[in-house]
């Protein structure tokens, strides 16, 4: 059967095919769909069938790269991306295209009487739809990866908040292990914040860092040096006695950096340096 004939068949039985395809999709999704999900699914199905029929007018099913299939490819990529975002499972996403096979083949077998030709048509269509299905899965996978990468970036940023605690004074509380990936992000966001807030002093608080080994020390020293180039001084706070002792045994020289045991101590030094001071006194209302 020439593809144009297939296109005509699809056109004539469009509504019936759409209805059957939709009901088999509702069945495979397996969970209860909200009314708006059902509407989306109906609209998606109608659009796919329309594009599929239009594609058949100019392109062979086997020739997936044909210009005639470009719109349907774009449509599938966009559909997969939105399904990935909305939390559809991989099999729910894949079944969109694959579930079209059954109603479509049923339609064909009602139309083509010669079993050999029927077989050939089904085989051709099946391969074509499989490729559309694979494209759907690749796009779905890619979107999932993008979502995960974005979440990771967001977490990296979340775990290193640079806060402006006073005029011209920034603070970064570091928490957890400083693997190089994170340290890089911390360094960059601190330097950016120094520039954007025109701060003179940055307090790096390591109270939440359990182990300060030579790699962590090296990262800290590099950050301090880079900040200095931007015109800001760093104070490292949270240097508990056990950390100080260990650093000395390691042979790391922190003498060029102001260190303090507590964040409060660091803030006091920073305020003195910037000329501000906290004065004990009576509350304003009293």
């Amino acid at each position: 059967m020439p593809t144009s004939q297939l296109a005509r068949l699809l056109q004539n039985s469009f509504d019936q095919l759409l209805a059957e395809w939709k009901s088999s999709q509702f069945a495979t999704v397996g969970r209860r769909l909200s009314a708006s999900d059902e509407n989306t699914l109906s609209a998606n199905s109608r659009e796919f069938l329309t594009l599929f029929r239009q594609g058949l007018e100019t392109a062979e099913v086997q020739d997936q790269q044909a210009p005639g299939w470009a719109p349907i490819r774009e449509f599938l990529v966009a559909l997969s991306a939105s399904r990935a975002k909305e939390g559809y499972t991989p099999s729910e996403t894949a079944s969109f295209v694959f579930s079209l096979k059954e109603p479509l083949f049923k339609l064909l077998s009602g139309e083509i009487k010669d079993p050999v030709e029927l077989n050939r048509e089904i085989w051709n269509l099946s391969r074509g739809l499989d490729r559309f299905g694979l494209l759907t899965m690749e796009a779905y996978q890619k979107s999932r990866e993008e979502i995960i990468a974005r979440q990771q970036r967001e977490m990296l940023e979340l775990s290193t908040p640079v806060v402006r605690i006073w005029d011209n004074i920034l603070a970064v509380p570091l928490i957890g292990t400083l693997d190089s990936n994170r340290t890089q992000v911390i360094m960059e966001s601190l330097l950016e914040a120094i520039v954007s807030t025109r701060s003179d002093i940055a307090i790096i608080d390591i109270t939440g860092v359990p182990t300060v080994d030579t790699l962590v020390a090296q990262h800290l020293l590099k950050t301090v040096a880079a900040a200095r180039l931007m015109g800001a001084d760093c104070i490292i706070s949270g240097v508990r006695p056990q950390i100080a002792q260990t650093i000395i045994h390691l042979g790391v020289d922190l003498s060029a950096v102001t260190t303090k045991a507590t964040l409060a101590g660091a803030l006091q030094v920073a305020l003195q340096r910037t000329g501000a001071a906290i004065v004990k006194g009576h509350g304003a209302g009293r």
Partner: peptide
């Protein structure tokens, strides 16, 4: 590091001793 910290806690190391051996293990 976590396993070494666990071991040093089990042995009742002081916080300074814990920190020293954990840091050495990290290196």
């Amino acid at each position: 590091r976590q396993l070494v910290r666990k071991g040093s806690l089990l042995l009742g190391f002081t916080i300074v001793d814990q920190t020293k051996i954990v840091t050495a293990s990290s290196e």
